[in-house]
Design a protein around this nucleic acid. Structure first.
Lengths: 301, 301
DNA sequence: TGAAGATTATGAATTTGTCTCACGAACCGG
DNA sequence: CCGGTTCGTGAGACAAATTCATAATCTTCA
């Protein structure tokens, strides 16, 4: 059986117009074409779709069954076409975000909340589990935006700077290092370092400090949640290096102190990587704008 | 946009096969054909359905949207084709019944209950409101079976006899006519006659007795429900003529008596009228068989 | 009942659209 | 870099849908 949407539209039109001839008008098609079409359909289905006893053609029981299908399916198609129109006009789209930096949830959520209100038809999602290979995934269109602090020269990909942050040293007030005004690489040698469970290359403390200085801490413990890291630090089970905004967000824990890394402190920049084609899209531009302003406001409050 | 089922199947196949070439195999079609098809679809939709950056073609966001439609719609079509197959094989069908005889509900319900168990895919219904014109409605396929006690010679329609019944006179034990062994037309002249609210031609008491004898009762009162008719009769507010099976069904009311009409009693036959084409269908044959046996059993019990 | 008007059916010709074939281009893994 | 794989493209073959012209029915109304 070779049913097609055309047939569904035909059935619906004949039902609504109450006859073949009027339906043909409605569809800007010849009455003859409809007659042929109906005949072909009935042949293929092996079922009489219309009562031919009466002259203004009427649907039979089987025809009614088909009509019900049509009334269920045709609106679905219109919805799809609507969605596609939105996609074309840039009102809708997909915005799947990969974050390399593990702590970015903290400022990203407020940004996305604000974004969703403005662009309800954009499919927003955060894709965890591709901390590695996030940029290849971007090129493959598996994700549409990558948050990273390591920009690369990449074809067809733009890195937009979002905001600066400072990775800061966090330790218990009981920790001897709390006495120092700032800490340096060597200070980590006899410390237990608590980090997010990601590759060392993605951790500022290693990429910016320890690896260049060839310093290995006494031990490294990987912990998933920021709150738990701070808990462990506060009870002097180890030290950590976290972006300043993270520490500020949960400053009500007063059992730990923060110190700059190196005398001057480190400054890093967070970037959003997007495909060139997407970067100009209205909703993407809007998101980038939000991601530049909202985190800064959060830090001030 | 000219979406067709073909496209939905294509999208689904490409997704499942993970590539154009394999999908083409799956659909017994050339890879080239699929390429053309996809291109045409994308042109019409104005949306990229696939990510072409990667070599084994993958669905884009818009493609996924289309895939979701496909997965929703395609099963619906299969369900329809299933239904049509059942219609063809005679497992399914429509059985809308028009009853001219107002009291037939009494035996018809048990019949239909039994029938539905055997033919769950047949759409059974009783269509009230066409006591008149039931036979034209049958020819127009608005209904599929008419229960009537007045067979006619009609082209393309078969009248199958179901069972015999006897219209009997019912009156209060207080009514003087209760003293008679049987009643005749003249006896009605000074009685209040209670009938169903239908045309006189459809009432046995008129068509078989009073109209031929040109007798008019003192008055006629029309009442919808059998139980109410018997209630009124029992309290001697009038007399009635009902099919014997009806009276037997509710015999626990002992305040009324029944008497034959005329010395020998009347015998009538109930018929089922069906379109010739339907009469041979298995489910219709089954229903007719049930309608011949079940009412008889009911009368005996 | 018969004629006019409306509605559907049919066959041949035409147009439209889809598929195949053959080939080329791009990509992947070793 | 090269064979193998996958996708894209254009031309021609083929199938299917539509139109045109006309016939066959049915409905209505006088």
């Amino acid at each position: 059986m070779h049913l097609e949407f055309r047939h569904l539209r035909t059935i619906k039109a004949i039902h609504e117009a109450g006859g073949l001839a009027r339906a043909a008008d409605l569809m800007n098609i010849t009455q003859s074409a409809l007659s042929h079409q109906v005949k072909g359909l009935e042949d293929q289905a092996g079922v009489e779709l219309f009562v031919r006893r009466t002259k203004p053609l009427r649907l039979s029981a089987a025809g009614m069954r088909l009509l019900r299908l049509a009334e269920k399916v045709l609106p679905e198609i219109e919805a799809l076409e609507d969605d596609f129109r939105n996609l074309q006009s840039g009102k809708a789209g997909r915005l799947h975000i990969a974050i390399e930096c593990h702590a970015c949830f903290e400022w990203l959520f407020p940004v996305l909340e604000s974004f969703r209100k403005a662009w309800p038809d954009v499919d927003v999602d955060i894709r965890p589990g591709l901390a590695f290979d996030a940029l290849p995934a971007l090129k493959r269109e598996e994700v549409d935006l990558v948050v990273s602090s390591d920009p690369e020269e990449l074809d067809a990909v733009t890195f937009s700077p979002l905001f600066n942050y400072e990775p800061v040293f966090v330790a218990s007030a009981q920790n001897p290092l709390a006495a120092k005004d700032f800490v340096v690489a060597e200070d980590f040698r006899d410390q237990m370092l608590i980090t997010y469970p990601v590759d060392r290359a993605r951790l500022d403390v290693f990429s910016q400090l320890l690896t260049p200085a060839k310093v290995e801490p006494r031990g490294v413990r990987q912990v998933e949640l920021t709150a738990v890291i701070l808990l462990l630090v506060a009870s002097n089970r180890g030290v950590a290096v976290l972006p300043d905004w993270v520490v500020r967000e949960v400053k009500y824990h007063s059992d730990y102190v923060t110190r700059p890394l190196t005398e001057t402190g480190l400054t890093r920049t967070l970037y959003a990587a997007t495909r060139d084609e997407d970067t100009t899209k209205p909703f993407m531009a809007h998101l980038l704008r939000l991601a530049k302003t909202i985190p800064v406001k959060l830090q001030r409050s």
